[in-house]
């Protein structure tokens, strides 16, 4: 049993946080912070890697399912944006391909027709998520980067992103159900468990990612939009 509350702050030792919440390892990866943390606190690690300390704290808190402070300044949002972008790259180039090759290996150990369908199903998911990331990378993030320099692009508003920000998790949930409930026990393969572990991991990671976008990034941008408008 775990509880969704912990007292994490800038002065918490990062090592202790990771021991309690292994999900935070993903945060290190996307911020490009190597292990070998010693007794450094979150704030110290942030400083050492030139990351706004509040950003690192907020991201870690979200990945620990705790409630972060909401207000971020421009430098902090800039660093959050960097984090989200590197996460996208990692999802696209590492996490999803890893899962794909496991599914392919699994598909060879099960009756061909199921195998083919599983692979096709996952390919469909990859296509969906690629489109989703592409939209954010090409349209949303550049818009926000501009806004951080007080430039508002005319033909886009963050509201549009809010409306389009669809749920990308449900196919992963479908796949989990298929693997756990429906592929019969007679099909024995080590890959099944491996896929599930990776799947759960990716699902969580994407959930925190979306939380950062919806609950930290969007409110900040909305605020900036109305400030810029009022100053004109």
């Amino acid at each position: 049993m775990y509880e969704i509350d912990t007292n994490i702050s800038g002065t918490s030792k990062l090592t202790n946080v990771i021991i309690e919440h292994p999900n935070v390892l993903n945060v290190l990866e996307y911020f490009n912070i190597p292990l070998g943390l010693g007794d450094k606190t979150i704030a110290e690690v942030a400083k050492e890697h030139n990351i706004a300390p509040n950003t690192l704290e907020v991201v870690i808190k979200v990945y620990c399912r705790t409630i972060p402070a909401k207000i971020l300044n421009k430098k902090e949002v800039h660093d959050l944006l960097m984090f989200l972008q590197t996460s996208h790259n990692n999802f696209k180039l590492v996490k999803i391909p890893e899962l794909k090759s496991l599914i392919e290996a699994f598909s060879k150990e099960i009756p061909t027709e199921y195998g083919k369908m599983l692979v096709a199903f996952f390919d469909e998911y990859i296509q969906e998520i690629d489109e989703h990331f592409m939209y954010e990378d090409k349209k949303v993030f550049p818009y926000i980067a501009n806004i951080l320099h007080d430039k508002v692009t005319k033909n886009f508003k963050i509201r549009e992103f809010e409306r389009n920000h669809t749920d990308i998790g449900h196919k992963l949930l479908d796949l989990k159900n298929i693997l756990i409930k429906y592929i019969p026990p007679s099909i024995v393969s080590e890959y099944r468990k491996q896929i599930l572990h990776k799947l759960v991991n990716l699902e969580r990671d994407l959930m925190y990612h979306t939380q950062l976008e919806d609950n930290i990034l969007v409110p900040f941008v909305k605020n900036m939009e109305s400030n810029i408008k009022n100053n004109k």
Partner: peptide, 21 residues
């Protein structure tokens, strides 16, 4: 079923002999 997408349901249906390939 806990499955939302049609393509996921297709796999479910095959596994449960509800339909053919």
């Amino acid at each position: 079923t806990g499955i939302r997408s049609l393509s996921g349901l297709a796999i479910y249906a095959i596994l449960n002999n509800i339909t053919d390939m």
